[in-house]
C-alpha cells in the first residue's frame, strides 16, 4: 500500500469524523434513537422473506429520507462504499443456479425463484449497509459508544470498540510515515520490495504499540478508568436547544418505528399496486 493510499484511508476516516460532528439536524438527534432505529431497520429488513421484493423496496424510504434530511451526499456514500457494495451484491449470486422454479412473469419474461431471491438478498445487503452508513455519518463513535452503554452493552466491549477505532488511525498514520520514509529512499521503485516487508511491518507494529501506549497514558492521567464518561452533548441538558433535540428525537423514533412496522406487516406495496391495476 503506498503512502498516498494510506493518506487517503486516513482522510476517509477523518472526513467521517468531521461529518459525524457537524451541527446538522440529524446529527443532533439522540444517538440512542439513531442506534435503536438502525438496529430495528436492519432487523426488519432482514426479516423479509426471499420473495418479498415489493415490501423490501418500500424499506428504501428510510435511507432516502435520512440522506435528504441529513444533507448527506449519496455520491460520496457510493464512493466510500465502493469496495463493500460489490461484495454485498455478490451475496446470493449463485441462487439462480439452485432455485430454477419460475415464480412470476414480467410480461413474457419468466423470473425464477433464484433470480428473485438473489435480487432480494442484494437489496437487503445494500439497504442495511446504507442504514449503517447513515448512522456512522451522523453520529460520532463516542456517541455511538455512549448509546451502547445506555443499553447496557458491557463496558469492556464498548471501550474495545472505541480504542480500536482510535488505534486504527494510529496504525494507519504510522504505516503512512514508514512507507513515505521508504519511498523517499527508494526512488523510482514501485511499491515496497519484498525483502523490506518484514522489517517495515515489525517497525510499524512496534511504533504503533508505542504510540498507542502513550495515548492510553494520556487517557489515564485525565481520569480514564476503563469507561468513557457519560453525557452525549457538551451543551447543558436543560438548555432549550437540548429540549428541542430531545422532542425531535422522540418524534423521529416513533415515526420511523411505526413506518417500519407498517411496511413489514401491512402489504402496502400490494395495496398501492392494486390502485393502479
Amino acid at each position: 500500500m503506498s503512502s498516498n493510499k494510506i493518506d487517503g484511508a486516513i482522510g476517509e476516516f477523518r472526513s467521517l469524523d468531521t461529518s459525524a460532528n457537524q451541527d446538522q439536524w440529524m446529527n443532533r438527534l439522540h444517538p440512542l434513537v439513531k442506534l435503536f432505529l438502525t438496529i430495528l431497520y436492519i432487523t426488519v429488513t432482514v426479516s423479509f422473506s426471499r420473495y418479498q421484493l415489493a415490501g423490501l423496496l418500500c424499506m428504501a424510504i428510510y435511507p432516502l429520507v435520512g440522506f435528504t434530511v441529513g444533507e448527506i451526499s449519496f455520491a460520496g456514500c457510493l464512493k466510500r462504499l465502493r469496495i463493500v457494495l460489490p461484495l454485498v451484491c455478490m451475496v446470493g449470486i449463485f441462487n439462480p443456479l439452485f432455485d430454477r422454479e419460475v415464480v412470476l412473469h414480467i410480461g413474457s419474461i419468466a423470473v425464477t425463484g433464484g433470480v428473485l431471491s438473489m435480487i432480494t438478498l442484494m437489496i437487503k445487503g445494500v439497504l442495511t449497509v446504507l442504514a449503517s452508513y447513515l448512522l456512522i455519518v451522523t453520529t460520532s463513535i463516542e456517541k455511538i459508544c455512549r448509546a451502547l452503554r445506555l443499553i447496557h452493552v458491557p463496558k469492556v466491549l464498548v471501550t474495545e470498540i472505541l480504542l480500536i477505532y482510535r488505534y486504527v488511525t494510529v496504525l494507519l498514520s504510522e504505516a503512512g510515515r514508514i512507507t513515505q520514509a521508504y519511498s523517499l529512499r527508494a526512488p523510482g521503485q514501485k511499491g515496497v520490495a519484498f525483502k523490506a516487508w518484514g522489517p517495515l511491518l515489525g517497525q510499524m507494529l512496534l511504533r504503533s504499540m508505542d504510540r498507542a501506549e502513550v495515548l492510553y497514558e494520556s487517557m489515564c492521567i485525565r481520569g480514564f478508568s476503563g469507561e468513557f464518561p457519560g453525557g452525549t452533548s457538551l451543551r447543558p441538558a436543560d438548555s432549550k436547544e437540548a429540549r428541542r433535540a430531545g422532542r425531535a428525537s422522540l418524534c423521529w423514533l416513533f415515526f420511523w418505528t411505526a413506518v417500519f412496522l407498517l411496511i413489514r406487516f401491512v402489504p402496502l406495496a400490494e395495496w398501492l399496486g392494486g390502485l393502479f391495476v
Binding site: 459525524a20 463516542e142 497514558e217 480514564f224 464518561p229
Partner: peptide, 18 residues
Amino acid sequence: AQLFMTTVGEDVAFAPRN
C-alpha cells in the same frame, strides 16, 4: 499523543467528564 478525541471541545471535556 495528548489529543485523541474528535474535536477540541470533546477533548477538553474528557477529563472533567471522567
